[in-house]
């Protein structure tokens, strides 16, 4: 029997700080693709935190939500990229 929930919660806290730091890039980013890259990074971090929280509390539901979030954020990224291409080609 081992209890690993506190290190996992600590890791989730660190990921939260990472999310805040990458949010700075969303505000700074000189071009629109830079902001999209930062948003993509934040999405990956959110998936990592959700998986960590799910294991820390033994709630499998969190991990299901992480899977759905990963796929939906991928579709969001594709839509942003598609929109940017449309803006640029005009």
């Amino acid at each position: 029997m081992i209890d690993f929930s506190y290190p996992l919660l600590l890791a989730v806290g660190i990921f939260f700080i990472y999310i805040l730091i990458s949010a700075i890039r969303i505000f700074l980013g000189p071009t629109a693709p830079d902001r999209a890259v930062a948003l993509d990074t934040i999405n990956t971090m959110v998936v990592a935190s959700m998986v960590g929280l799910g294991a820390a509390t033994w709630e499998t539901l969190f991990i299901d939500i992480a899977i759905v979030y990963a796929v939906l954020s991928y579709i969001t990224t594709l839509f942003i990229a598609n929109y940017l291409e449309g803006v640029g080609s005009k």
């Binding site: 071009t31 629109a32 693709p33 999209a36 890259v37 993509d40 954020s73 991928y74 990224t77 594709l78 942003i80 990229a81 598609n82 940017l84 291409e85 803006v87 640029g88 080609s89």
Partner: peptide
């Protein structure tokens, strides 16, 4: 795949 889409969009922009 998402990174690939973003890179292509950046180059088209």
């Amino acid at each position: 795949t998402g990174a690939h889409a973003l890179a292509r969009a950046a180059h088209r922009v």
